[in-house]
């Protein structure tokens, strides 16, 4: 029995190298898209003077929520600038936004499918459990092999880790739409697509938004780990601070992550605002 060993890890490696051979071109394309999107967003966020961006975020906060959040936003971003973390923060924000967008584009349709098919829902549930509970650093290994060092493997790991709540909340939101209301759509002769678009999605929107909020929070919690593979940003500073035992730098980068997290969370928690019957 001493020799007994299931080489699961080795098989994983073989699958990975096979995927690299077969989908190499596709991965290259994905890498380019993510890199370009991220670079464009970083350019957009760091070209104007910092106060213009801070004001723009404050205005957004006011428009979406309240003037209190606008003031808080302004103070928070002032602190980030004062700690000399502005560029890092914008790089991180950009990574989170791009990763969240891609995660939403993938997870909402999967959630819709899961809501309409019991079988698909049962199949995808263990996959989501796997994605969410696997130590996120493990994603970095294949991501590094496929996408090379830089921001992209960090982003891919972030997307994989943050995907699950998007799918779950979308499925839950659609399933919780009053059955009789959906039936009313059917009784008046609406097609399934129409029912989805005009009834299920709008009514599930508060729940879906709560899911997207979760996706953002998970993505933000991944940025430090992404820093380990050269994603830069605040995560890069945290990792550097860890290596040099530089508490001051680590604290400042950490506080900047917290400010971004609070800003994004308050901005996207729409849940209570929905109209109810």
């Amino acid at each position: 029995m001493d020799d007994f060993r299931i080489p699961l890890g080795r098989w994983g490696e073989q699958v990975l190298s096979w995927m690299l051979d077969v989908f190499g071109g596709l991965f290259g394309l994905l890498r380019t898209i993510m890199l370009e999107a991220n670079d464009a967003l970083i350019w957009l966020l760091s070209t104007p003077p910092w106060w213009a961006i801070a004001l723009a975020f404050a205005a957004l906060a006011w428009w979406v929520r309240t003037w209190k959040l606008a003031v808080g936003t302004l103070l928070g971003f002032l602190l980030i600038f004062g700690m000399n973390q502005w560029d890092n923060a914008m790089a991180t924000l950009s990574l989170v936004v791009v990763a969240t967008l891609i995660a939403v584009i993938i997870s909402v349709p999967l959630g819709i499918l899961a809501a309409s098919s019991r079988t698909f829902s049962t199949l995808i549930r263990p996959v989501l459990d796997f994605l969410q509970t696997m130590p996120p650093m493990v994603y970095l290994i294949p991501a590094l092999a496929i996408f090379r060092v830089g921001v992209v493997p960090g982003m891919v790991a972030t997307i994989l880790f943050a995907l699950a709540p998007g799918v779950r909340f979308t499925e839950l939101g659609i399933r919780r739409v009053d059955h009789e209301v959906v039936e009313a759509g059917e009784a008046f002769g609406a097609s399934r697509w129409r029912i989805l678009r005009q009834i299920q999605l709008p009514l599930a929107l508060p729940t879906i938004m709560a899911g997207i909020n979760q996706v953002i929070m998970l993505a933000l919690s991944m940025v430090v780990i992404a820093g380990m593979v050269g994603a830069g940003g605040l995560g890069g500073d945290v990792v550097a601070a860890l290596n040099r035992l530089d508490l001051a730098l680590g604290f400042e980068a950490g506080v900047s992550v917290v400010i971004l997290a609070i800003f994004l969370d308050r901005l996207t928690s729409f849940a209570g605002k929905a109209r109810t019957t």
């Binding site: 009053d178 009789e180 209301v181 039936e183 009313a184 059917e186 009784a187 008046f188 002769g189 005009q198 009834i199 709008p202 009514l203 109209r275 109810t276 019957t277």
Partner: peptide, 18 residues
């Protein structure tokens, strides 16, 4: 047929709240 020949009224109204 459902759209043009038969309409339905529901116990709990089943109106579209949005």
């Amino acid at each position: 047929l459902r759209a043009e020949d038969m309409a339905m009224v529901f116990q709990h109204f089943a109106l579209f709240p949005h």
